[in-house]
Every structure is written in structure tokens, then in C-alpha cells.
């Protein structure tokens, strides 16, 4: 009720219920977690996105081949001409819906402007898509990859409601907490110091340098083979997408199925 009942004098039915009984609880929960993990690392002239191909419901494996990485804005069944890649983990149906929306937007952009959308613009648009459902969010962790206007590898990561940031590397999904510290250490050299450079606060941090593509591929594989060992929702297959100036390369390799 908009106004309070008087606390003295004769009573009026101000606080009377508008219905005879309290409304029933909603029995339908519109989300589920389909498990899996993704990670992205950007280099000097490339961006790599990787994800496992398992889809789960609780302890069940729905499918051993359910890719989480997608090409955005390409034409035709092979996504010809695409230069942007998206990884989504979390609730699979939201992920699929998000991917299709972004893909359509980038396609329409090319039709209306006669040129490809930049990763920067696409990244901001994705943020808006997510925030647009701030009060009924897409339950996903998204990572967007591409090549920026200077030809450098670009990587953007998102929370479910659209907060985003450009980063060197990011892990998302079920095994994010397992992979991210590994990436901090191996990509951004966190907790690595120059030997003999001093004691305590005098220690010099190891200088961060862009990593080579082959080295990053090895990191990605190590990250996933390890995550598979420690997380039951991760496994079956490893999908890797690499964007360079020349386009997108894909590789799918096996992971343990247990």
C-alpha cells in the first residue's frame, strides 16, 4: 500500500490484501549451467580463442561436440570473410542467442556501411547487447577476439551484464578459476622476478613481452589438459580459433573423455 494506516482511532482497511491468498512461488527457473571453459590470449598480430567442446547438465554429458567458439559476421555457411571471433560459456541457450544477435548486427553493419565492423566497435556493441538485458541477463561469460585497427591482436572479456575490458588474456567458464592464475603467471609473468635482482621489494618483475603464436598454442593446450584433470565439466575436445590479418584458422583436437 502506498500510504500507512493510522496508528490510532478507528481502523480502516488500508493494509487489507488485494488478493485473498499470497501469490504462489514461481516454479520455473529459466537458467541452467552447461559447464565448459574458454580462454583467450592476444599476441602482437594474432588472437587465440580456445574452448572445450563438452556440454553438460549436472553430471550428464549432453554432447561431446558442442563448440563454444563462433565466427562473427561472416557470409554463408562457412562464415566467409569473418574477422571477429566470439567465445561464450555458461547457459548454452543464452550463449547461442547472444551469438546470433551479434552475428546479425555485424552482417547488417556491413550491408549498411559497405565495410567490416572494427573489433572495437563490435566489442562495445556486445557490451550493449548484454546490458540491454541487465534485469534478465544472458547468463554467459563472453570473450571477443579479433585484430584491431593497428593490426594488433585484440581481446575483450565480458561479465554477464556487459561490463567489459580489453585484456592480454582471460579465462572464462567452469574452470576459469583453475586456468586464470596459470595465465597470470605464464602470460603476464605475475610473481616472476629477475633472478638475483634484489631481496623483497627490491625484486625486479620479469618484463612482459608479447608471446609467439606457437608458444601461446602450447600454453593453451597445457591449460586445458590440466583443467580437464581437475574439473569434471571440462573435456572431450579442444577447439582453437586463431585470428590473424589473413583470416581465421580452426583446429579441433581431442581431450580426455572421462
Amino acid at each position: 500500500m502506498a500510504f500507512a494506516a493510522p496508528d490510532h482511532g478507528p481502523g480502516y482497511s488500508f493494509t487489507s490484501p488485494t488478493t485473498a491468498s499470497a501469490p504462489k512461488q514461481h516454479g520455473f527457473y529459466p537458467y541452467t549451467d552447461n559447464g565448459g571453459s574458454i580462454l583467450g590470449i592476444s599476441g602482437a598480430d594474432f588472437t587465440i580463442l580456445a574452448g572445450d567442446t563438452r556440454s553438460t547438465s549436472g553430471y550428464n554429458i549432453n554432447s561431446r561436440m558442442a563448440p563454444k567458439l563462433f565466427r562473427i559476421g561472416g557470409e554463408g555457411p562457412d562464415a566467409t570473410g569473418a574477422r571477429i571471433i566470439l567465445g561464450v560459456v555458461g547457459f548454452g541457450a543464452d550463449g547461442a542467442a547472444l551469438k546470433e544477435r551479434l552475428d546479425t548486427i555485424v552482417k547488417i553493419y556491413r550491408y549498411e556501411h559497405g565495410k567490416d565492423m572494427s573489433v572495437k566497435a563490435c566489442a562495445q556493441r556486445l557490451s550493449h547487447l548484454l546490458y540491454g538485458k541487465r534485469f534478465f541477463p544472458y547468463y554467459t561469460h563472453a570473450i571477443l577476439g579479433g585484430i584491431d585497427e593497428e593490426g594488433k591482436g585484440a581481446l575483450y572479456s565480458y561479465d554477464p551484464v556487459g561490463s567489459y575490458e580489453r585484456e592480454q588474456c582471460r579465462a572464462g567458464g567452469a574452470a576459469a578459476s583453475l586456468i586464470m592464475p596459470f595465465l597470470d603467471n605464464q602470460v603476464n609473468f605475475k610473481n616472476q622476478y629477475v633472478p638475483g635482482s634484489g631481496e623483497g621489494h627490491d625484486l625486479k618483475a620479469r618484463e612482459v613481452v608479447p608471446l609467439s603464436r606457437n608458444y601461446v598454442m602450447e600454453l593453451v593446450e597445457d591449460a586445458f589438459t590440466s583443467a580437464v584433470e581437475r574439473h569434471i565439466e571440462v573435456g572431450d575436445g579442444l577447439q582453437v580459433l586463431v585470428v590473424t590479418e589473413n583470416g581465421i584458422e580452426e583446429r579441433i583436437s581431442p581431450l580426455k573423455q572421462d
Binding site: S13, T19, A20, K24
Partner: peptide
């Protein structure tokens, strides 16, 4: 807010059972 409303001490509390039952 109370003007024009029935007083509970005269007419009794509002009988909500006449309202739609569902929320």
C-alpha cells in the same frame, strides 16, 4: 486517505474473499 472509506469499527474489516483469488 480515509475520507469516504468504510470504518472498520462500523462495517467490519474489508472482506478480501470477494477479490480475484489468483495473484
Amino acid at each position: 486517505q480515509a475520507w469516504g472509506r468504510p470504518r472498520d469499527d462500523v462495517y467490519g474489516a474489508y472482506n478480501a474473499s470477494f477479490l480475484p483469488q489468483d495473484g
